[in-house]
Lab assay of single mutants.
Amino acid sequence: MEVRTIKVFTTVDNINLHTQVVDMSMTYGQQFGPTYLDGADVTKIKPHNSHEGKTFYVLPNDDTLRVEAFEYYHTTDPSFLGRYMSALNHTKKWKYPQVNGLTSIKWADNNCYLATALLTLQQIELKFNPPALQDAYYRARAGEAANFCALILAYCNKTVGELGDVRETMSYLFQHANLDSCKRVLNVVCKTCGQQQTTLKGVEAVMYMGTLSYEQFKKGVQIPCTCGKQATKYLVQQESPFVMMSAPPAQYELKHGTFTCASEYTGNYQCGHYKHITSKETLYCIDGALLTKSSEYKGPITDVFYKENSYTTTIK
């Protein structure tokens, strides 16, 4: 009895394709271990004539594949690729409408935090270190965002349907971005203890939790000093293409032309909904596939993004 075979390709990165001759009487799992086709788990399936010449994702289970996976995804987590594939199996079914010149995501599976993050990423200057993220990001900007969303979920250790947080998501993504040249110098002034300067680099240099107003941050924000008295913390120097200011959701007025974009969060910790506000020729609110415009805006804002380049204080 002759062994019926077909020729397929296996890959971990969709760049390096490895030619395989597979036995049609055995499952993919018996031949390769966990195997995925377009995100779908085909591990328990036997090869079919229609699979001839198709590319299958496999887990990096030998040295060659491990090197290829690390170079593309910059992670050695053995569960990463499987999590990416199972997320992709959902995100490829989502709709990605162009809204006001940006790629958004039609609401499904509690994905409003991903839509808000995706919209924000198209408006701030950011370059990702893992080629996987950078490639998928370019495709997302062009309207094909399924891979990018699935990668975000995998890097953030999230599953489809789980509630997510924009600030946490951005923080994970910033860790995989090139923020080497970003720098922030802060000064804390206390009447009792004097003053202390701190220099922050990388992710810490672009994120701040405690106030939404970048102007206020430049002037000074009140913080408790270690001595128990009130101290003032203010920005001395900022070198970065953008800054992200966050605070627990509270009524906040966004003035046209003073910011790049913002995240609105309605609801409580267990259950809520994100919308995205962007400042173009007027203010726009993007909620999944829905767009509304207004000249002014007041609502429960939790993150505001500002364009920056270089700032030095005039406070002496």
Rank of each mutant, 00 (worst) to 15 (best):
V3H: 13
V3P: 14
K7C: 14
F9N: 11
T10Y: 13
T11G: 10
D13M: 00
H18D: 13
V22S: 11
D23L: 10
M26Y: 13
G33V: 05
P34W: 08
P34L: 09
P34Y: 08
T35H: 15
Y36G: 05
Y36F: 12
D38S: 11
A40W: 11
A40N: 14
D41H: 10
K44E: 14
N49K: 10
H51D: 14
E52H: 13
T55A: 09
F56Q: 02
V58W: 03
P60M: 09
P60G: 05
T64K: 12
V67L: 14
E68S: 07
F70W: 12
E71H: 10
E71P: 08
Y72F: 10
Y72C: 10
Y73L: 07
Y73C: 04
T76Y: 11
T76K: 13
D77P: 05
P78Y: 10
F80T: 05
F80M: 02
L81H: 13
G82N: 10
G82F: 12
G82M: 14
Y84K: 05
L88K: 05
H90G: 13
T91S: 05
V99G: 02
L102D: 01
S104P: 04
K106R: 15
A108P: 08
D109H: 08
L114Y: 05
L114G: 01
L114D: 06
T116W: 00
L121V: 11
Q122L: 04
I124C: 06
L126D: 03
L126H: 06
K127A: 10
N129M: 08
P131S: 04
A136C: 03
Y137A: 08
A142D: 15
G143Y: 03
G143T: 05
A145E: 02
A145D: 05
A150W: 05
A150S: 06
L151S: 11
A154W: 07
C156Q: 04
K158P: 01
T159Q: 15
T159H: 11
G164R: 06
E168F: 07
T169K: 00
M170L: 13
M170P: 06
Y172L: 13
Q175Y: 11
S181D: 14
N187A: 11
V189G: 04
C190N: 02
Q195G: 08
Q195P: 12
Q195H: 10
Q197P: 04
V203H: 13
E204W: 06
E204C: 07
A205W: 07
M207F: 03
Y208K: 04
G210V: 05
T211R: 01
S213Y: 08
Y214W: 06
E215W: 02
F217R: 03
Q222E: 11
I223W: 15
T226R: 14
K229L: 11
K229C: 12
A231E: 05
Y234R: 09
Y234K: 09
L235Y: 03
V236D: 05
V236I: 10
E239I: 13
S240R: 02
P241K: 10
F242C: 01
V243C: 06
M244H: 01
M245V: 01
Q251M: 15
E253Y: 07
L254F: 00
L254G: 07
L254H: 03
K255Y: 04
T258I: 08
F259T: 01
F259C: 01
C261Y: 02
A262Q: 00
S263A: 02
Y265P: 05
G267K: 08
N268L: 02
Y269N: 10
Y269M: 08
Q270S: 12
G272A: 00
Y274K: 03
K275W: 10
T278Q: 09
T282G: 14
T282W: 07
L283N: 02
Y284W: 15
D287Y: 02
S294F: 15
S294K: 10
Y297L: 10
G299W: 03
P300K: 08
D303I: 01
V304D: 00
V304A: 01
E308T: 09
S310Q: 13
Y311P: 07
T312Q: 13
I315L: 15
K316C: 15
